[in-house]
Simulated scan of single mutants.
Amino acid sequence: MPHNQQIVLDNRPQGEAVASNFRLVLTDTPALEDGQVLVRHHYLSLDPYMRGRMNEGRSYAAAQRLGEVMMGGTVGEVVESRHPRYAVGDKVLGMGGWQEYSVVDGAAVGALRPVDTSHVPLSYYLGAVGMPGVTAWYGLVRIIAPKEGETVVVSAATGAVGSAFAALAKARGCRVVGLAGGADKCRYALQELGFDACIDYRQYAGDVKALSQALKPACPNGIDGYFENVGGPIMDAVMLRMNAFSRIALCGMIAGYDGAPLPMRNPALLLINRTRLEGFIVSEHMQVWPEALTELATLVGAGKLRPRETVAQGIAAAPQAFLGLLKGKNLGKQLVKLI
């Protein structure tokens, strides 16, 4: 059996996450038992939610345990199988974690999902046609539920979720406005992702009033739906432009993942505008995944969703790539290539 390099959580962050919170270890892959499958990971997904699970405090999911392999989505290839459902060479999606190989119980519901790479690249199943894409779909379709002609806004606009959100919203006839960090990202949003407007929030250095003023010409008819990935001053600025009976899909609060409280500047706006705000975790809505994935794959096939990927090479690069993701250094989906 092959040796397996893994990244484990060595200690919990005290404020901002740092590289020394992680540790690279080398282990022996155990021999397979009946019913098990050995998967060689080709790509590892890095996602903002992982930062929240590094903390010990109460959250919507159990904290990452110290000394254990960091959790994370993976796509790869079956290299040995003792389960009749899986054959050597099958391409599969799973939650293999920050490691080169995983041993999976082939009978466990949802542990592995075969994927078709004849029309969709393998890595896309971790982004546009995977969890981030379905996250965008659920927040837009089931929570914001926009009507044609409405204006919708998304923060972290050029990430994996924001990219998919734009394509899905344009397909529904919406005006789509993004918030992103930096001129290059805003150009990408406009020229490649199809956004109608994109605001570089870094120009406003946390000035809520100034950012809200910048949103005014981008959203001349106000904001009907908002997909929130960041929180903090960005959310405060957007709320100043929300219309009556607007909807907010609360997906992430990356601005608060270092543990500091994220106060809301003017919560009375929720009442004044009769805004519906709903937080959601996409893994709790597995019933929508087939419908969402079908639409996302169709958009990719038609060239209407052209996701970019930022790819780090090798498992040892995962911690620094993850820290870069938290600071917005990636463009599109952040992956680690493991082969």
Results as ranks from 00 to 15, higher is better:
residue 88 V to C: 15
residue 59 S to Y: 15
residue 119 H to L: 11
residue 332 G to W: 00
residue 317 A to G: 12
residue 317 A to R: 10
residue 7 I to S: 05
residue 54 M to P: 13
residue 328 G to T: 07
residue 146 P to F: 05
residue 161 V to Y: 08
residue 122 L to H: 02
residue 303 G to I: 09
residue 15 G to D: 12
residue 203 Q to N: 05
residue 212 S to C: 07
residue 47 D to F: 05
residue 75 V to E: 02
residue 229 N to T: 15
residue 257 Y to M: 14
residue 37 V to R: 03
residue 203 Q to A: 12
residue 145 A to H: 04
residue 254 I to W: 02
residue 194 G to L: 06
residue 240 L to C: 08
residue 299 L to T: 01
residue 88 V to W: 14
residue 123 S to G: 01
residue 57 G to M: 13
residue 96 G to N: 01
residue 270 L to Y: 13
residue 337 K to V: 02
residue 48 P to A: 10
residue 124 Y to V: 10
residue 43 Y to V: 01
residue 57 G to K: 15
residue 97 G to K: 03
residue 324 G to D: 08
residue 18 V to Y: 02
residue 117 T to H: 05
residue 208 V to R: 05
residue 271 L to S: 11
residue 176 V to P: 10
residue 128 A to F: 09
residue 277 L to A: 12
residue 98 W to R: 01
residue 233 P to L: 03
residue 91 K to V: 05
residue 118 S to P: 00
residue 31 A to T: 09
residue 313 Q to F: 00
residue 168 L to T: 02
residue 213 Q to H: 12
residue 246 S to F: 10
residue 257 Y to C: 04
residue 30 P to S: 14
residue 306 R to Q: 15
residue 191 Q to G: 03
residue 243 N to E: 04
residue 80 E to I: 01
residue 230 V to R: 03
residue 164 A to V: 09
residue 299 L to G: 02
residue 255 A to M: 09
residue 37 V to G: 05
residue 290 P to R: 15
residue 30 P to E: 12
residue 264 M to A: 14
residue 334 Q to I: 00
residue 190 L to R: 14
residue 5 Q to C: 07
residue 328 G to A: 07
residue 127 G to F: 00
residue 147 K to G: 13
residue 267 P to E: 12
residue 327 K to G: 03
residue 96 G to R: 00
residue 119 H to M: 10
residue 116 D to I: 04
residue 247 R to S: 09
residue 223 I to R: 14
residue 87 A to G: 13
residue 179 L to F: 09
residue 215 L to P: 05
residue 31 A to M: 14
residue 196 D to V: 11
residue 12 R to I: 14
residue 285 H to C: 12
residue 118 S to W: 05
residue 117 T to A: 06
residue 232 G to R: 07
residue 320 Q to L: 07
residue 274 R to N: 14
residue 126 L to D: 01
residue 142 R to V: 02
residue 294 T to M: 12
residue 219 C to P: 03
residue 62 A to H: 15
residue 246 S to M: 11
residue 294 T to I: 07
residue 234 I to P: 03
residue 181 G to K: 04
residue 55 N to K: 15
residue 312 A to M: 12
residue 226 Y to T: 06
residue 77 E to K: 10
residue 265 R to F: 10
residue 339 I to N: 07
